[in-house]
Design a protein around this nucleic acid. Structure first.
Length: 114
DNA sequence: TTGCTGACCGACG
DNA sequence: CCGTCGGCCAGCA
């Protein structure tokens, strides 16, 4: 109890992890879900991203993509190519909504955060 | 209160 | 290789 103080709701947990994503890195919904211990509920991670707009904090949702490195949520980001431009702004190459060298830019919370 | 939808993932044929 | 289906949980009409 209280040791880690993770009484946060699923949404907040996702927000915390996403905010921990370093600059120029990306992760996947399933990776976050697995890190939270709710593997299989990757949908909820994406749903939490939708709620990120409701959050007062700035959630770098553009660093979260699907397992294929595809910008599935770009339309929900509030624009058409905003998400892609943000990723390219961080040094990530995106072609056709697909991140190049996704394996190189991939950031796994379960491994990086231990 | 019930039911549908959703920024996904993995398995099966 | 590609198409299809089920599962997961939470918000909303």
């Amino acid at each position: 109890m209280a040791a880690s103080g993770n009484d946060l709701s699923f949404f907040l947990k996702v927000h915390e992890v996403v905010k921990l994503i370093p600059f120029g890195r990306v992760t996947s919904y399933g990776a976050i879900a697995s890190y939270l211990g709710t593997k299989g509920s990757a949908r909820m991670v994406g749903w939490a991203m939708n709620a990120s707009h409701h959050s007062l904090d700035s959630i770098p949702a553009h660093r979260v993509v699907n397992r294929s490195g595809l910008l599935t949520g770009k339309h929900n980001f509030g624009g058409s190519e905003i998400m892609q431009q943000l990723l390219e702004s961080e040094g990530i190459t995106v072609i056709g909504d697909q991140i190049q060298d996704f394996d190189f830019f991939f950031w796994d919370p379960a491994k990086e955060l231990l």
